[in-house]
């Protein structure tokens, strides 16, 4: 695109940053994702000091900074705390708009899990509705091994 100022054509340089990344999940996160993959189960970690149960799991408590070693299983269903129906297109989403993103408080957990919501008309989604995880048939140890959460 070229514009002019003081009779000088103004150039722009179209470019991109394409540095490839390979992020470490770490032991704690790997255990969580492998449980999704192998057993379709959602595991959390529990803080020994303040008893908070974290999903996704933490190695350290956000609130009291204690080291966490204890694992607890939480249910694959819970309560929708908030949601949005996304109307714009982005290459970063698996799927086409409109689609729904929500935060779910799973039964047994004390922190919300951000995930996709589907299997419900957009005007029927409500804060407070119960939802359940729908697992992918082919799983690879990834947060999207849960395809989405659907209303019960």
């Amino acid at each position: 695109m070229a514009q002019k100022q003081q009779d000088q054509e103004l150039l722009q340089y179209e470019s991109r940053i394409k540095v490839p990344y390979t992020w470490s999940v770490g032991e704690v996160g790997s255990r969580f994702l492998m449980e999704l993959k192998e057993n379709r189960k959602i595991w959390a970690t529990r803080c020994p000091s303040c008893d908070m149960v974290f999903v996704p799991p933490k190695k350290t408590c956000t609130y009291c900074f204690s080291d966490i070693h204890e694992w607890v299983e939480v249910k694959d269903e819970g309560v929708l705390q908030t949601f949005t129906v996304v109307r714009y297109e982005t290459p970063l989403i698996p799927g086409k708009p409109p689609y729904i993103i929500g935060i779910i408080m799973l039964d047994g957990a004390d922190t919300g899990l951000v995930h996709l919501i589907a299997g419900v008309p957009h005007d029927k989604v409500k804060v407070g509705m119960r939802v359940k995880a729908v697992f992918e048939e082919k799983r690879k140890g990834h947060i999207l091994d849960i395809n989405h959460f659907k209303p019960i």
Partner: peptide, 25 residues
């Protein structure tokens, strides 16, 4: 975070929408 949140496609707009709904509710 690239492990748990980025794959869901979060950005400043849709997370603001989540916050707005939560605040309203």
């Amino acid at each position: 975070d690239p492990i748990y949140m980025r794959p869901i496609g979060l950005d400043s707009l849709n997370t603001a929408a989540l916050q707005m709904r939560r605040y309203m509710a």
